[in-house]
Design a binder for these strands. Structure first.
Lengths: 238, 238
DNA sequence: TGCGTTCTTTGCGGCAGCGCAAAGTTTGCT
DNA sequence: AGCAAACTTTGCGCTGCCGCAAAGAACGCA
């Protein structure tokens, strides 16, 4: 779990970075300027931790580019991915749920770019900026819903259905239209998918092979393209 | 899913009902009086829904007595219990996570008593009463943590360990010391336990039988007593 | 007290998916 | 180009757990 090397406050962040994102979309230029001037911008390599589970929640983040996996590690060292977070969302908002320590590790799934602020600014943002608190709580709400869904899924569905669901969620969140299908637009391994669906990389590999034979997906190393989303939906709803 | 019959505002609610509960503990007598005067008190039979998944989130609740299961029902009618909520906690606080509809069904596990307020009061409570909002968010945070734990558990542990964990959680939350062990102080069936741990009542029954033979638990109809919690801890951590 | 309902126990067969193993493929590095 | 590391595929045997079934035990009600 190697930390990123350099912290850099870019000379001048453009206001358009934030102005269209929900937690900030109600603010005027001057407010956004202020917020940006307080922010630290940092680039992260792929596969590094933005913050670690259990560490003091000293900063909160806005993911500007890339994808982040929210991961928990078990006593025996296995990783379980709780969520995928796409660009444009807040991250590490422990303060919004009254936590002083990060409850999970945030790991970049691709090279990523994020702004961050000291957690001490959280309360002033919430107080000063209209809609900021509300939108943050909505973010929490969405994640709660997603976790809820995953619990139900894992409790009631078979591996094949869970993997189908995970793929569908991924192409919904982060899908990119290509020639003959929708591709997950970041590198994702069989291992990653297995950690998302509580199975093994072997089983995922077998499933993808089978689906490929049926023309539902196409995959190569770290790339998965869904050709027939509808077939997956059908599969997932058995 | 039969609804409770009678709504009754009791003649005079005692302030001590709320004064020691975290979301209200920082308030003075006059404030609590005001809050109580706005509250509706209602008794619920065992096994009824306090509110239903998907319904407009029109009220929020404080569970004064009893136990509530937070349940989601799948397309095929199976029930999955996401959480158990003991007395003394807020319930149905959809507003705290920016939701307009209840994300799950709250079902009483025992006869219960709850106060409730119209959701329109949520914002004024948050604005007027010191600590109310913060404590509510902490409640959300704790539930997020618990859900997270359940996801990890279901992803990595075997049935035996999950059931052991569920029992331990139940005796921690709602355990009552008795002669030679700790008893879960509300009626819980094998079926209930299986819905908590994503398995079948048969498997739960078999496990309890086996554990009883080893002297770790004692159980009768709807009652489970843990005699050797430590042994369960050991089991759950394999 | 007797009867229906709800809950629990136990046996048995089957199979989904895991664990292990080994070989094949792609990528990055020097 | 050549090698190591990372990722993927596939086969095979095993087993934990489910599904089905059926009987037994406890409770609630008339």
């Amino acid at each position: 779990m190697n930390k990123p090397v350099a912290t850099s406050t870019l000379p001048r962040l453009d206001e358009s970075l934030l102005s269209h994102l929900p937690p900030f979309s109600k603010l005027d230029k001057r407010q956004i300027r202020t917020i940006l001037d307080q922010a630290t911008s940092r680039r992260y390599d792929k596969g590094v931790a933005i913050f670690d589970e259990g560490a003091p929640a000293e900063r909160f983040y806005m993911l500007l580019d890339g994808y982040v996996r929210v991961v928990r590690v078990t006593a025996t060292g296995e990783q379980v991915t709780a969520l995928h977070i796409p660009a444009g969302q807040l991250l590490g908002i422990a303060r919004a749920i009254g936590k002083e320590f990060y409850p999970a590790t945030a790991m970049t799934a691709t090279e990523s770019l994020a702004l961050s602020w000291p957690m001490t600014l959280w309360d002033s943002f919430a107080a000063d900026y209209d809609g900021f608190a509300t939108e943050s709580y909505k973010t929490v709400g969405n994640r709660v819903s997603e976790m809820n869904n995953r619990i139900v899924e894992m409790a009631t569905q078979q591996v094949e259905q869970r993997v189908a669901n995970a793929l569908l969620r991924l192409i919904n969140q982060t899908g990119r239209k290509v020639a003959d299908g929708i591709e997950i637009d970041f590198p994702i391994t069989r291992q990653d998918l297995s950690e998302l669906t509580a199975t093994t990389l072997h089983t995922v590999s077998r499933l993808l092979s089978a689906w490929e034979k049926q023309g539902m997906v196409q995959s190569k190393r770290k790339r998965i393209k869904v050709c027939d989303p509808h077939a997956l939906v059908v599969l997932s709803q058995i």
